[in-house]
Design a protein around this nucleic acid. Structure first.
Lengths: 187, 187, 187, 187
DNA sequence: GATGAATGAGGTTTCATTCAT
DNA sequence: TATGAATGAAACCTCATTCAT
């Protein structure tokens, strides 16, 4: 199946990059691990770079979707943010390869912040949620990136530590930190 | 002069990596930009990897030193943390190349978290400061990495956004965010 | 239709080679431009090389046929040669792709001069015409290839220049040059 | 010696291209035949294409120089043209590899006719010689490319045949043909 | 200490050809 | 006949590292 092969290539790429980085992941290894020939990768992707970008795009979309699990938009403050925060943390720790990939990508020259402004649909819904809280007077009117760093940015940082094995957060600690993040941006 | 040449090499490496990443920075380019021959680089450093690690070590040390500017250890809570927070933010935005280098390094396979436990002297002083606040009952007794992410991690995230040109924080906004971080970890 | 497909393949090959050369013409592009699949090309031709040779053979035959347009064999000296000369020139400038193909082929390792001795029927008639002029004492008894270069070879060279846009020959200039070629080989 | 290595590379390239064509001459073979490593070729030349162009440029210059051997410019008509004509023929047959290289290059997509207008100094002197004959009323006032094809173009064509082994021209035959060329363009 | 030409392994990519469908 | 995904050898090129000078 075509779809299978494309997926196998992306998955092998994810595995290897998470383990060895972009530079340490030659196309020949991607081919070997995904069980395809080296040539066919160029049938599905224009270049190694195109493959790298496409994999990022897909992970980023999955991440956006994961943030809205449990329909946080229907919850009152601060439960809505807590839910999103926990969703983010859970995505990160349950998808360590994806997390390492995202971080590596976003801290590399591959990352073009110009594309960042194209908030996808899910991110747009989150922005709308924050706007509502601005109107309700529950959240400080800080720029969106600032609010992001004070909340989901913290979730990311903690998740990376947990993936690295430096800390292990249990459920109650997580609730605690999520609350701290809410407190940090609450009016 | 030996010292001059070594410094020139490290500086050229920093320039190029911040701009193009590790993979996009061949030793030959480092030689060209630093005005030395390719061969001599191997007199000062065992390998390209050794150069990469050494540059990281030096930047990390400078960073640790910068955190303690203005002697925050002598200030009362929460001024001590605010001072450190602003020091961190200032270091990042005033050293964008170094910041990008650190981030790239720490999110790459070069980074070995095992070394992270070797807190250097400056970091040790900060840890002591936090211990004192634990004892004073002003700060929640959370693991050190958690406290780090809730405070300096936020400073880093914001600084990266500012370097990328996505946000610009003025002095009062910074104070505001620094306070929010203090509030997040205060008891 | 079989014939159609085979022709479409040959025509696409001609287009692409004239534009980009043998090396710049992958089979996949020939397939795309001719609207067939890559695989079917190997039903009509044993290999890319076989396709290249076959296309050459066909163009060379068309060229031989074109030389005899207007029945020059029935004309007296020097009208017979002038007619052939103008036929050759006309073929070249009216078939620029074919001309570029022939030239590329004959100056490449594909060209095996051994095959050149197999003068086809049309060339044979030309040779006979020259023999007749030898007997009549109108043309110098030079080796055939020498006579060729002094006459049709010049037509080819000029046509190539005109295709390249370096010169434009009008009808009277052509007559003039054709006459000069006759003069060059006349006794 | 640097010069030696560069020359060895160009010479190996010439050998192989004359034998097998551009496409049949991988850089790895050039390296092997010239006795250098594959990598060093890219120290002397930016790319395989750059090497191809540079070799053409050098051969073309040598050719232009060879045309003026024996100081034909000081001879009266038609000895001056005869001298140049024989120089051309001699260059071609004594440098078969160079001749095949030139022909292959000029009939390939590598050749950019725009550069052709940049007649080098030697070609300029030939053009001046022809201008003088125009003024003296000895040569028909035809465009330069037309005169070229009627004279040196014929020498090239014959030389190619001789290189291919199809004809062998002895000295008297050559004189004969050279005279025929003179006659073709004489008034 | 210092140079930079030289090496050669290995990287990305292309492409003639095959074959299951 | 016909397709086009798939193969894998081989092409061009890069670059960390060495070494004669």
């Amino acid at each position: 199946m075509t779809a299978d092969k494309e997926t196998a290539i992306l998955d092998a790429m994810l595995d290897l990059v998470a383990e060895r980085g972009f530079h340490g992941t030659p196309v020949s290894q991607v081919a070997k691990r995904s069980g395809v020939s080296a040539g066919i990768i160029y049938h599905y992707f224009d270049s190694k770079d195109a493959l790298i970008h496409e994999l990022y795009r897909r992970i980023k979309m999955d991440y956006g979707r994961a943030l809205l699990a449990g329909d946080p938009l229907s919850l009152p403050w601060p439960d809505n943010l807590t839910c999103v925060w926990l969703n983010a943390f859970r995505f990160y720790v349950e998808h360590p390869r994806e997390t390492l990939y995202l971080e590596q990508y976003e801290n590399s020259p591959y990352y073009d912040p110009a594309h960042f402004t194209n908030l996808d649909e899910n991110m747009g819904q989150l922005a709308a949620m924050i706007q509502t809280e601005f109107a309700a007077g529950t959240v400080q009117e800080l720029p969106f990136p600032v609010l992001y760093e004070l909340t989901l940015g913290v979730a990311l940082g903690l998740a990376k530590r947990q993936i690295a094995g430096v800390v292990v957060m249990d459920a109650s600690e997580l609730e605690h930190v999520a609350e701290a993040c809410c407190r940090a941006i609450a009016k």
